[in-house]
Write a protein that binds this DNA or RNA. Structure first.
Lengths: 374, 374
DNA sequence: TTGTAAGCGTTATCAT
DNA sequence: ATGATAACGCTTACAA
């Protein structure tokens, strides 16, 4: 009827619960072969699965890790999950995936739920707003690893892209391709650390290369705002060779499609004719590059130059870091419980920040395929 | 140190655990206002959260629902999740989201994990392979609702698109737009029920309309295979007006980008010139439509005609169906446990299959913008 | 209105 | 080498 318990198995095998438990936990050394066999049979015939809830209750370890993502619609999040799930399998952990849909309220709700289910640790790609309850969680005693974004005043492990190095790579390429001006394009939410890091790094590096710079904000939902940006940049492009740098894949898509749609401006790699102000405008083309390398970047015509993030590795590494903490954390708790608690704070309590190198993928959208007329 | 328990709260408030428990479960009627206040304070000051594991163990209800998806990379899956999460919030359930990455082995592994964590029910978008252990789960006593795909020989609730009605709508539109031939394009895995349903419905309906039909298989990873399809269809298009119908959004993207890339064939809505066999080919354009309405369908130039699925509602409804079963199921278990088990199988044990209507979104990719020369 | 005690399925401790 | 028994944190009769 209801799910069989360890007692059912014990009864059916004619042994004590303890032995069954030992079998389940691989303490095979302390079990005689005949017993082992009987238990194995009983388990199989009853189709028994140990109750992880009860296990967790007793052991104090649920093997659950909360994975809280700002926005599952972003392919970046999905890519992270691949790495996390693979790493979880290795470590015998179970990810509990939650999508905050860019709402702090939901983020907080899930944070609560995850605590309630006694997740042993959290992997968070935070929405990045100050109202977040994340702060309290980190200050509590459950380990947290931040992914992609850091949060002001929260000190914990984090994994992300080396935005400075990536920006250098990209801007160097743009300069070498003859671009003289760089415009960084992102969505409104500039409280997000990675977006800010990318912006300042790109602009700084561009200035170092003697390029003129600007920073623009779009609203992906609002076609008008995108058209306006393009208008503005098309204007600039009549004077200097200009490249747009999108802060992420979704912004890039919006820009690329608008560029493809229009007739008065285009991308370098495109062979569609550009008609703008008649003869005096060989500069009706805007370069385009982007952080993130979504599927469609390669498929588009022309292909879009991107900085590919090792998303799988970022996710996996985040989990490894967490798993680390889990072990030392459990140990610390055990020690304190047994009375010989050390007043000095945990040994390696300092946050570890890992960053990964991006890979620059050059495609035609930044080709130096056009010459300056003037 | 470790998380506070209900006893800690009771002690801190100077009351019995029972009262705290009552407070937690909203049995506020049986609590004097002063007691209530003291408990509330204690909970707040200790930052206490009830342990859901222990709760579930005692009550036999974990409030966990497993959500097992064939492929999280498919935006359709993500869209489903939105609906599921919203509905879960309403019903006080916690979704455990798992991604099988199109691997039966992973699917089975997660099925096991979900049983182990005592998920009360499962929402499954199955990989659709016969080796799946899904069968055993459905035959066990935990309720399952299938999403989008049914599985041969598994009788349980399901929610999906009304593929026949959707196909009719689309084909009728194509016929009215002057297309004389329809080619259904999908990826290899034809063991997937929805893909098969769509194929047969589209082809049948097209025949009814006196159109010639064909069915093609592509491998999204393999550019060659896509190019080959297009070659083939371009050929056909010189004779009759031909429309491609993609089985899902990802197939559509591959086709649209290949069409945009090429010069010898194009889409109706596009104003790019098409050069094919000189003068005798006004038919160098292929119509294109697709099941699924991903973000990019509207943004592309030209826009792609699609059948939009009410994904949010599908996900939400799936959860409601499950929640239903959860209640009646729990009741049944309770009755059996109390000895007066009814030998006759559960009352409403017959599978319910809900289907939703698609919305046809006509865009330029199927415009009758070209005339037959011959 | 409030508290006491038993038990959910498991593991850890201690006997045997 | 094996098993009885007491927790883990919570809910729920039942008692007061």
């Amino acid at each position: 009827m209801s799910a069989p318990t360890i007692s059912d198995v014990a009864k059916s095998a004619g042994v004590g619960k303890t032995s069954v438990s030992r079998f389940l936990n691989g303490e095979t050394a302390a079990l005689s072969p005949p017993l082992r066999a009987r238990i194995e049979n009983a388990i199989a015939s009853l189709n028994y699965r140990p109750n992880q809830m009860a296990r967790g209750l007793k052991r104090g370890r649920t093997r659950l890790v909360g994975v809280l993502l700002a926005d599952l619609q972003n392919p970046f999040s999905v890519a992270l999950i691949q790495g996390i799930e693979a790493a979880c399998r290795e470590c015998g952990l179970m990810p509990m995936i939650c999508n905050a849909g860019n709402e702090v309220e939901l983020e907080n709700r899930f944070l609560d739920l995850l605590r309630t289910y006694r997740a042993e640790g959290l992997l968070v790609n935070p929405v990045g707003l100050p109202e977040s309850a994340l702060r309290n969680v980190v200050e509590g005693d459950i380990p947290v690893v931040l992914m992609d974004r850091k949060v002001e005043g929260i000190a914990c492990d984090s994994v992300g892209l080396d935005n400075v190095s990536a920006s250098k790579m990209l801007v160097t390429h743009l300069a070498a391709s003859g671009f003289q001006s760089v415009a960084f394009v992102s969505e409104a939410w500039s409280s997000i650390s990675s977006r800010r890091e990318r912006e300042s790094a790109v602009l700084a590096e561009a200035r170092l290369n003697g390029m003129s710079v600007s920073s623009l904000v779009v609203d992906r939902e609002d076609e008008q705002s995108i058209a306006r940006i393009i208008d503005q940049m098309r204007e600039s492009a009549t004077r200097v060779r200009t490249a747009l740098v999108a802060a992420n894949g979704q912004t890039m898509l919006a820009l690329a499609l608008e560029l493809a749609r229009r007739r008065d401006v285009g991308l370098p790699g495109s062979d569609a004719p550009v008609a703008y102000r008649g003869a005096d405008a060989p500069l009706g083309r805007l370069g385009l590059a982007s952080f993130d390398d979504p599927d469609w970047a390669a498929m588009m015509t022309p292909g879009i130059t991107t900085l590919r993030q090792p998303t799988f590795d970022i996710g996996a590494r985040a989990l490894y870091l967490l798993n680390d903490r889990l072990d030392t954390h459990a140990q610390a708790v055990r020690e304190k419980a047994s009375g010989r608690g050390n007043a000095a704070s945990s040994p390696a309590d300092t946050p570890r920040n890992m960053s990964f190198e991006a890979e620059l993928i050059v495609r035609s959208s930044t080709h130096a395929a056009f010459a300056l007329a003037g």
